[in-house]
């Protein structure tokens, strides 16, 4: 207590006198006796009461405004996630008008709402792009800068006609180069792989891009990004004849990172088993067929076929 700044003239308080119930009386005491306040309440100075309450109220107001800001932007984000883009956009605009500090968040919120508004229009898309560009180029960088870059990539990749995959790749590359450990840098690696490999280019160019992407594998720090990256590369190997061994390697890595959706998880196990069988790795094939059955049970249309395969399995590779 003694370390706190004390206003001149002492501290005001409200005390209640037992003899005059609920009637506030003013008390005054010297500043030096602060430590004795607990034992001498009658000495409080009432004149400080409004000041304390005012400070409390200001703090409370600040807290309420902050909570209101959180709840209002939170409500807008929830509205957006629930598919109510028009209402969400209106909420973001309202918050921006009342809270200049939330401008970057509301700009991104409005941009995402614009991208979801129906009917889809070029005007909305360009407005969204402008908002994201404004957030992306403002100094200093913050977490919203990353979101803005990510959405600039998404606009180029998914919302622009004709699609600008090279433009999208630029934004994604910036993200995983400058912020490789961030959630959005990790996600950008996966998106970069997709736009690089699915662009219709000459087979040699696809192969070159694939090999460059393989060199980026060490940057994959998050399990979900690692899984998705390897799933993309594994599928590409099969689609563009980049080798069954490579496809198998990617699928094994994806599976190790944890595939979450039940049907996809079962399919990855089957793919590993089938590729292993094709490549002559029969022990590994059998292991993954069995894992598939353990996961899928009878609830998969492939279970019966896999059981049949295992029943006819060469004796020498049975455990």
């Amino acid at each position: 207590m003694s370390g706190l700044p004390v206003p001149p003239g002492g501290i005001s308080c409200i005390a209640f006198n037992a003899g005059r119930a609920n009637k506030a009386v003013e008390c005054r005491r010297p500043v030096a006796s602060l430590d004795r306040m607990a034992t001498a309440p009658a000495q409080f100075s009432y004149r400080w009461i409004p000041a304390v309450l005012l400070i409390g109220a200001v703090l409370a107001r600040a807290a309420t405004v902050e909570a209101g800001s959180t709840s209002t932007t939170a409500a807008a984000w929830r509205e957006l996630a629930a598919g109510n883009s028009r209402e969400a956009r209106a909420s973001f605009l309202k918050v921006r008008a009342s809270q200049p500090t939330a401008i970057r968040e509301t700009q991104i919120g409005e941009a995402v709402a614009l991208l979801n508004l129906q009917p889809v229009t070029a005007t909305n898309r360009e407005a969204a792009r402008r908002l994201c560009a404004e957030v992306a180029t403002a100094n200093p960088e913050d977490a919203w800068t990353l979101k803005a870059r990510y959405f600039l990539g998404r606009i180029s990749e998914l919302h622009t006609t004709p699609t600008d995959l090279a433009g999208a790749a630029t934004h994604y590359e910036w993200l995983f180069t400058h912020h490789p450990a961030s959630e959005w840098g990790q996600l950008a690696l996966v998106k970069f792989a997709i736009v690089q490999l699915q662009e219709p280019v000459a087979p040699d160019e696809t192969h070159r891009r694939y090999h460059r992407l393989v060199t980026l594998e060490p940057k994959l720090a998050e399990a979900s990004a690692r899984r998705d990256f390897h799933l993309v590369l594994g599928a590409t190997c099969l689609q563009h004849d980049l080798g069954l061994e490579e496809a198998l390697r990617h699928l094994l890595a994806a599976e190790a990172a944890g595939v979450r959706q039940p049907i996809r998880a079962a399919t990855v196990l089957i793919q590993i088993a089938e590729l292993s069988r094709k490549l002559g790795r029969l022990v590994q094939a059998r292991t993954y067929y069995e894992r598939f059955l353990a996961v899928a049970g009878d609830g998969d249309t492939r279970s019966f076929l896999v059981r049949e395969r295992l029943a006819a399995w060469p004796v020498e590779v049975k455990p």
Binding site: T70, S71, T73, A74, W77, R78, L80, A81, E105, I108, G109, V112, A143, K147, F151, E183, L187, V190, A223, S224, A225, R227, D228, L231, G258, V259, R260, Q261, R264
Partner: peptide, 27 residues
């Protein structure tokens, strides 16, 4: 929904997804 979830987490509000569901969303 990915950015809404992220924004809610950033602000300390209750997120839309658990970490498992978030991973599933990306997948």
């Amino acid at each position: 929904r990915a950015i809404a979830d992220w924004a809610l987490r950033q602000s300390g509000a209750e997120p839309l997804f658990s970490p498992e569901r978030r991973s599933e969303l990306h997948e």
